[in-house]
C-alpha cells in the first residue's frame, strides 16, 4: 500500500471558461483535435491511393462534396489560428536567444515565425503549381 497520500486539488468542470486567458489557452490546445482530423483525412487519401484508382476516386469525390469543402474552410481557420498561436507562445517555449548581449524580443520571434509560415506556404503553393503544370 502506498503510504503517501498526495493532496489532489478539486477541479471544477469548466474552470477554463471564466477567464479570457484560460479560455484562449483551451481553444489553442483544442485546435489539435482538428489537426488530428485533418491528418486522418490525408491518411484516408493515402490509404485509398494504395487501394487503386477506384478507391482513390471515391476519396476525391468525398473531398469535392460541398460539405467537405465547407469543413475545410473551418479547418483552414483552425490551422491559421494554430500558426498564429504556435508562434505567439514560441517566445515562452524557446530557450532564451541572446543577440549581441540583448535578449531577442518576443515580437521578433513571433513575427519571424509568421514570416516563415508565409514563406513556406508560398513555396508549397509554388511547388504544387510547378509539379502540376
Amino acid at each position: 500500500m502506498n503510504v503517501r497520500r498526495p493532496y489532489v486539488r478539486r477541479m471544477e468542470p469548466g474552470w477554463w471558461w471564466k477567464n479570457a486567458f484560460l479560455l484562449r489557452y483551451m481553444i489553442r490546445e483544442m485546435t489539435s483535435l482538428l489537426v488530428a482530423v485533418y491528418a486522418f483525412v490525408l491518411l484516408a487519401g493515402v490509404f485509398a491511393l494504395s487501394r487503386g484508382d477506384a478507391a482513390y476516386r471515391q476519396w476525391l469525390d468525398v473531398m469535392a462534396n460541398p460539405w467537405s469543402v465547407a469543413f475545410h474552410g473551418l479547418l483552414l481557420a483552425v490551422f491559421l489560428y494554430h500558426s498564429w498561436s504556435w508562434f505567439e507562445i514560441m517566445p515562452k517555449t524557446l530557450p532564451q536567444i541572446r543577440l549581441g548581449g540583448r535578449r531577442l524580443p518576443a515580437a521578433a520571434i513571433t513575427w519571424g515565425g509568421l514570416a516563415a509560415t508565409v514563406a513556406c506556404c508560398g513555396i508549397l503553393l509554388g511547388g504544387t503549381l510547378w509539379l502540376t503544370r
Binding site: 485533418y38 475545410h72 483552414l76 490551422f79 508549397l124
Partner: peptide, 14 residues
Amino acid sequence: AALLGPMLVLITGI
C-alpha cells in the same frame, strides 16, 4: 503544421 498547415488545407481541401 504551423509552417505548412494552412496551405496544405487550402490546396487539398478547397
